[in-house]
Write a protein that binds this DNA or RNA. Structure first.
Lengths: 113, 113
DNA sequence: TATATATGTAAGCATTTGGTTACGCAAGTT
DNA sequence: AACTTGCGTAACCAAATGCTTACATATATA
């Protein structure tokens, strides 16, 4: 994790631990120690994951006394949703079952030219 | 990219170059050199990206003489689609506009307990 | 057959990533 | 005031990532 970098939602969700963190706090807002209890990694490691999630807008922090509660801001996942949605047709159409839909798409493209 | 590792769809799409490759070949099946022409990185670098995409099932190769055409198998993105879909409600519901839907979810959870 | 083309792969390298331990500090508690 | 709790961050480290160049191999083509 180290210092910093350009944070990106796709990169943020690439890590399985971070996906698990999202899945945890979506059920219930949790403070950092509570989150860390669910993993075998150290508390600072979790803290760094949270930092990444915060930096790319997937998580927001609500301070409450000395505790910091993590809340998901899942609208940040819209970017991923939009990206993947543009390809949805390619596995939903009737050619899917024939396992040759790609060839079909290919020939469609050729027709357009 | 290096040698090998446990390939994962989420990790595969984390790289912007790989997302661009997907976007290229979905329009038209292309061989490796044709793909590489679209990037400023070397041909072997593209080859390694293709390898990763192949290993996690997003791309398949159709050999044709000495050329190898890359075709997308976008059903592999289903995993991403399913993952992100489970959170879709959290940015589609009416609380979204109030920007406090998370608080709502939180209180819902509390009620259930 | 000799050459050109299309590609894979190994080796090397700088950077990033994900983890650790050690420490510091603010906010509660005694 | 002294102690405990919750957390951030720095320093360090091993492994992974993304790239390069160099080379090998298979398939056309002249």
């Amino acid at each position: 994790m180290s210092t910093e970098a350009r944070r990106d939602v796709f990169q943020a969700i690439a890590d399985p631990t971070r996906r698990q963190i999202i899945n945890l706090i979506v059920k219930e807002s949790m403070n950092l120690n509570a989150i860390a209890e669910n993993f075998n990694i150290s508390r600072p490691a979790v803290s760094q994951h949270i930092k990444i999630l915060t930096e790319c807008g997937i998580v927001s922090i609500r301070q409450e006394g000395r505790e910091r509660f993590c809340e998901p801001k899942l609208a940040a996942l819209k970017e991923v949703s939009n990206w993947v949605d543009q390809y949805r047709q390619f596995w939903n159409d009737r050619f899917d079952s024939l396992d040759n839909y790609l060839t079909k798409i290919q020939s469609d493209n050729n027709l357009k030219k």
